[in-house]
Amino acid sequence: MSEPVLELEVLRYRPETDQDPVFQTYTVPYNSDWVVLDALTHIKDNIDRTLSFRWSCHMAVCGSCGVMINGEPKLSCHTFLRDYYPGKVRVEPLTNFPIERDLVTVADDFMEKLASVKPYVITEEDRPVSAGEHLQSPADLNSFKQYTMCINCMLCYAACPQMGLTPDFVGPAALALAHRYNLDTRDAGREERQEIAASNEGVWDCTFVGACSQVCPKAVDPAAAIQQTKIASTVDWYKALLPWGK
């Protein structure tokens, strides 16, 4: 009896030889415990060492191994072959990102957008270490905790059609993290973040498709964060019209 196998179609792009990306089919042993990343690693170790892909932790924490699996953005370390077997598995680099090589994308634009929203606690005054812990109640933590789970895996950017249609859009993860710090009781940086979040390229490019939240492997809800930011920014806008506002 022959061992069960599974066909993996992988989008290849070797900038030095390929004009356009092409699919290459690999046949790998099927193992019900394997995730797609295991299959990719098997290919690199045993079949074709030129295949390039990113990964690091193999446990859905580092956010490096996001790819399109049968058209859906997923972490390859978190997607089991058994959910597709005996069907084929088609692996492509994340949509809406330029391809550097094979499954590796160029993430520079995302990194710039992420940094632009200042995703860290900004305090009114510098707090010396001697000031001790910056306390926060569990209830206050709960108001934003889900957003802290973001691992910057960029699946939401691949799922968002507005990212493809309007490349300047700041995008789901960055806006969700801006919201996360705005909600943090220790933070005083909202006004600085609003410069980006409430700009034309900020929340207003979102049309609430909601795909970002559906594909998030960590159950973060960027779509909710963006709508809440729209409402809060609208309140700011009307408040500024009042004689005593601003």
Partner: peptide, 29 residues
Amino acid sequence: VMDRRPYVREMPKSWWLGQRRYTFYMVRE
């Protein structure tokens, strides 16, 4: 050192027909 030549994929105009969640969104709109 290899030359970089990042490949940009165009978004097809029919993007909303490919997947159920996008088609649902388009009907909603």
